[in-house]
Design a binder for these strands. Structure first.
Lengths: 151, 151
DNA sequence: AATGAAACCGTTCCGAT
DNA sequence: ATCGGAACGGTTTCATT
């Protein structure tokens, strides 16, 4: 993982379908060298996935909510984590320090659906309390920071 | 945006580099029809971006924190929104209802860096109070839900 | 690890339905 | 809007350094 790899990652972060031949022009390396570097980053798991970002307004899931969740006991964590993997409307979930144990991000199409989702989450085993925040504006959302740690 | 488009989106969400020829086999449509549908979804903005998900542990940004931020006055919103676009370590930001006006997700490499980031965010114009949560585990993180709204 | 050349395969364009 | 064919361009493999 040298500076060239980070350059390639940033290019792919901007456009995961950028061709190796264009990347090779941009970073002044041969096509085969670029492909070989990408292949290695896939193999070693540096690149975990290629994905798309869709316009949630246009796909009908324009409502976003953040729900803080606390569990009755840490023993419920595993089953909770399992359950939320299967719930499509939950797009992210973090286990965190603070008053609430977890925070989840929900993507849905209406406040009616949000209410239903709220009930579903509340009824998962071990869920103690929740606090819901409706997102008024999605100010920024990228997947991960790609910043080379000092040299 | 019919059921076939949603199928294509889901395939691309799993692998944005899936070839049109493979997609065409999976959904029983000709290669040119698949390409034409993708082209239209790009043009109309349904597909906003192709991107990669990297392993943050392997790229040296394995620390995640969530920071709630409140502003002294709503008039500071625009400048705050502008400022955080430029801050690479801030990967997401939501304007929300509740005690705090905003919540941001931070990706960094150490608690020392987090402390420095905390000071930087605190010193942005109009920032009133912050509350920071360290993420102990990233339980789930996909970009957006792709769910076809009832038929 | 990087390079260039050749074979291969996917994409793009186009005319037809 | 979909289809299949032909030309094009990108990828993959390999021998070489």
């Amino acid at each position: 993982m040298d500076a060239i790899d980070y350059k390639i990652l940033k290019i792919l972060q901007k456009n995961a379908r950028e061709t190796a031949s264009n990347i090779s022009k941009e970073i002044h390396l041969s096509v085969s060298a670029v492909i070989e570097r990408i292949r290695k980053m896939e193999e070693t798991g540096v690149i975990k996935e290629y994905t798309i970002i869709v316009d949630e307004k246009k796909t009908g899931n324009e409502m976003t909510a953040l729900m803080e969740v606390s569990l009755e006991h840490p023993k419920f964590f595993d089953s909770f984590a399992d359950a939320i993997q299967k719930l499509e409307y939950i797009v992210s979930c973090y286990y965190q320090t603070g008053d609430f144990d977890l925070i989840i991000r929900i993507s849905c199409h209406s406040s009616d659906e949000l209410e239903e989702i709220h009930r579903q989450v509340m009824s998962l085993p071990g869920v103690d309390a929740t606090r819901t925040h409706v997102v008024l504006k999605n100010v920024k959302n990228i997947y991960s920071a790609i910043r080379r740690p000092d040299k």
